[in-house]
Design a protein around this nucleic acid. Structure first.
Lengths: 195, 195, 195, 195
DNA sequence: TATGAATGAGCCTTCATTCAT
DNA sequence: GATGAATGAAGGCTCATTCAT
């Protein structure tokens, strides 16, 4: 396993191919052709076809969570952090629609991800959101009685649905334009009254 | 003379099988065995394996939308209608976890559903939600400046994520208990201030 | 097996269906539909799908040979008998193109016919031709040194090829018009010089 | 890098298998086993099972027609050319009885061949025969009033029937021994009187 | 006798994976 | 390491045949 760029090139090719046809309708040889290599070469870097998807997913999610954590840390205000998360989420989707399509769709293959190999990476993102909400509560900006897990899932679900609609739809508008309304509605729903 | 219960029995068996292994990892013969019939019999009622999934999806979504429409019509207050939708959504998921798992997961196979055969059924549910929000605006209970499509997707996304987490998780709690918090947070986010 | 018309109706339907699609591309249910009966009914009269073809073939060949024998017996002159055979052959093909197509094509399924169940019926037709040639030799009208088996096959092959070309072709001409030329060429080839 | 001998090996195996059981009763896996390869390998070289038969047929007929054309061109005398064609035809059948059996039988699958993909190859052989007859007419050796198309089909049909009988029969004699009688009878039938 | 729904063996074809070069 | 031809297990679908009604 010498060439350090090959795995990345394979993953990038896989993203494009999976986005086009879905995991089960894509052939390993399609990925190889897209990557400009022979299909046997893929098996020098990945154990199985499944391994490509799982690795892809883990890697991208880890990158993503790291980025969000860094950006969120740069903000002081808990509510600004929430706005930041929404803005980042939508920007990432908008800038990487193929990756987004793969993740949106295949993420739901519960057996593979939520319950499986990538559960950790997924929950890390939820943890980031929940931590910010906790900060908000501690700062008195978010309702003390807010059920945090529920609110976390709601925000993720709301963002995810906007993203899904955009990815699977015609993409005739800028998803990033939805960030402010989404954040505002959510924040109005969770913040302390009179603040 | 064809048995009019067979298609339903096949669909019910397919729901159990797809929930267990996912569409692509299920064999037609698995569905047949689950339904207690020979695999060839399935082809007397469905054209292809795909047809089973699409029919299943369309049928269940149509039933679902009809039920929600009826129940919502029975409520007067727009905000009570929203609470009703959330309660129904969660009850349905909780009472039909296998169906829920299939729909949650396969719904995202964008190529098959959102963009494909079942786009109509899916959007009908969105229409129900959006109509209620419009009523709320007309009644002065919901913010006049609310971006309706965004709010509709947010509510659906929030419910869907709660449902997904519950379905794919350990189901150690009652999903219906989450209905009130979800509805409250959402409503606080969208209702007119001071109402 | 009460209804005496059913087997005939099934065979007639089979002729039309086999002519249209060939034996292997025809389904038993196609024959049933063509005959206006249920597919299970076919098995009251025929043991297998194969049995339909074999019975069809035997029956039609037997009828055919009986007819030719009768008509040939009505002629005195051996050469006139040959002309009669050719004329009858072409008329039969022309009047029953669907039967002809089935027989022409499936006849060659050597395993089933020449070597199999219908060898007897096929050779009976060859016997008729050869007998006439023998008469011709005995009457001094046909060359004494003619290899009879070869000449018999040649005449049959010549007629059969004309028939095949007509059946598989556009049928834009009357096959019966070819009877006289075919008979003449053959007879010139086999008759005694100077007669 | 694909093995250039594989397609030929597959076709040769297919000839043996088809000759043994007929096209419809042969499985692709039978051909693979006969060729000593895995069944999937066949699909690296042929698109479908049907493609094997069509390719086999086209290729062999093209070779055959080319050979006949070359050999016929080497003869001067039109009548000698006819004798040559008959001799070659019978020799080819006798030397390749399995190929012969396949071609004889499947050739009649009108839908596939005469009317289908290989119509061109088949008619090329007829063209060779007819051209020679035309030469004979031009040379005054063959009757000016001979209906050429009829005579062409007669000769082909005669040869084909002798071949079929031999192939499907016990092959207890040398087919090539029939060449001279067949040619003589045909030529006596078509040549100018007194020549 | 007639029906046609049900059966399930059978087969073509695909494609993830291997391995000789 | 890289290749891609070869493999062969797997599965969707068909259809001849059966049998309960």
């Amino acid at each position: 396993m010498r060439d350090p760029d090959k795995p990345q090139a394979i993953i990038d090719a896989a993203i494009r191919v999976f986005a086009r046809s879905g995991y089960y309708n894509s052939r390993v040889s399609d990925i190889a052709r897209e990557a400009g290599i022979a299909s046997g070469t893929i098996y020098l870097y990945f154990k199985t076809k499944d391994d490509i998807l799982v690795t892809l997913f883990r890697e991208k999610m880890a990158e993503w969570v790291a980025l969000v954590q860094k950006e969120v840390a740069a903000e002081r205000d808990p509510l600004a952090k929430i706005r930041k998360i929404v803005a980042l989420h939508f920007r990432m989707i908008q800038d990487n629609p193929e990756l987004a399509e793969v993740v949106q769709v295949e993420l739901r293959q519960g057996h593979k991800f939520f319950r499986g190999a990538s559960a950790h990476e997924v929950s890390a993102y939820f943890d980031v959101i929940q931590s910010v909400l906790e900060e908000g509560v501690a700062a008195g900006r978010i309702r003390r009685d807010l059920p945090l897990k529920v609110a976390t899932k709601m925000l993720f679900g709301a963002m995810d649905q906007l993203a899904t609609s955009w990815v699977l739809g015609k993409r005739a508008y800028r998803l990033t334009d939805a960030a402010e309304p989404v954040a505002s509605i959510f924040l109005k729903g969770v913040t302390t009254d009179g603040v």
